[in-house]
């Protein structure tokens, strides 16, 4: 069961802006196997969401995929045309967005909107899909009879995210991308939603990419974690391995910055802030903030290398 579902190779995405070319993703490569749950973690603006949008091929002008391959079940998504993409989107890969309330059309009833996606995949009318809509809503612990006739403005944030999840999973996609599904929700609802996702995904055996900046959420939910910084991948390892044995200075800094209950010491942050991606630093993009920066870090860009079994890191400290 360890076969490859998604392989991203040398992906490079830029945004053409008035200030110059923003290098949002620089040479990103990773592999995701079937039934894995991969967490992508990084600061705001490090390219997490751009990665997920690129996999869905939803990068729109002024953004552009300039280089790279996204191979999903043997098909290169970068080369597919819009029509073949539309047969993959929703059916094979689906996505949950971070703002559940604004991701639903405000003037359409919930039942209709869920029905739309089901009817397209199953090739039936929206009316005929209502039976499946009710099943989908039941699966996310909502009362179908009530919710189908509500407008998005009548839902709470948690309910709206449940609706989004039911939409994304109603077609049983092979890959589901959850782009910060809980960042707009408060902590108790966050826990409920993550538990629900966990339960549904274990039942249906979907592969999941979870995008978050919450290390705790990722640690609980994911099998593997991918750390991104300024449009590059810095570390990729199994969750346990990453938390017990972080290699990259950035990962180490992140883990040190987690507040712990009962800890009296001051929390150590990472000095500096995320670089401007119009003029990213030469060499390793992390070197201006890195406590271990060497001469070579300013000149040469490190590549992602296998350091130990299934533990990839991109840093000149390891070679």
């Amino acid at each position: 069961m360890n076969d490859v579902l998604l392989e991203v190779k040398n992906l490079r995405v830029v945004f053409h802006t008035y200030r110059g070319i923003v290098q949002a993703l620089d040479d990103v490569s990773f592999t995701i196997h079937r039934n894995e749950r991969v967490g992508i973690i990084g600061e705001t603006g490090c390219g997490k969401s751009v990665t997920s949008l690129a996999i869905m091929r939803l990068i729109e002008p002024p953004g552009e995929i300039v280089n790279g391959e996204i191979i999903f079940e043997g098909k290169d998504l970068v080369k597919l045309n819009e029509n073949s993409l539309n047969t993959i989107r929703g059916k094979e890969i689906s996505m949950i967005f971070q703002e559940p309330l604004s991701s639903l059309n405000p003037v359409m009833k919930v039942g209709f909107q869920i029905g739309e996606s089901i009817s397209k995949v199953k090739n039936i009318s929206i009316k005929a899909s209502q039976k499946f809509v009710r099943d989908a809503l039941k699966a996310v612990d909502l009362d179908p009879e009530r919710v189908v006739n509500l407008y998005p403005s009548e839902l709470s944030g948690g309910m709206a995210q449940r609706v989004m999840i039911s939409m994304a999973l109603s077609t049983n996609p092979k890959l589901m991308i959850a782009d910060e599904p809980t960042s707009a929700l408060d902590v108790t609802i966050q826990a409920q939603i993550m538990n629900l996702l966990d339960e549904l995904v274990s039942k249906m055996k979907n592969t999941v990419i979870l995008i978050t900046h919450d290390l705790g959420v990722a640690a609980q939910f994911c099998d593997k974690i991918l750390i991104m910084y300024a449009g590059t991948i810095v570390e990729f390892a199994e969750t346990k391995e990453l938390f017990e044995n972080p290699l990259h200075p950035y990962t180490k800094g992140l883990l040190k910055a987690i507040p712990k209950v009962g800890n009296k010491n001051k929390i150590v942050g990472i000095p500096g802030s995320v670089p401007d991606l119009v003029n990213p630093p030469r060499g390793c993009r992390f070197h201006p903030r890195c406590p271990f920066a060497m001469e070579i870090c300013k000149i040469e860009k490190p590549t992602l290398k296998t350091e130990s079994q299934d533990h990839l890191v991109s840093c000149h400290l390891y070679r």
């Binding site: 819009e82 929703g90 689906s94 996505m95 967005f97 604004s102 639903l104 059309n105 003037v107 996606s117």
Partner: peptide, 24 residues
């Protein structure tokens, strides 16, 4: 709007988006 992006992610084609979600 985000909901147009989300419906694209569900695989909706241009005709459907324009006629059902933008025009109204």
């Amino acid at each position: 709007q985000p909901y147009i992006e989300s419906i694209k992610a569900l695989g909706a084609g241009k005709t459907r988006i324009i006629s059902l979600h933008v025009t109204p």
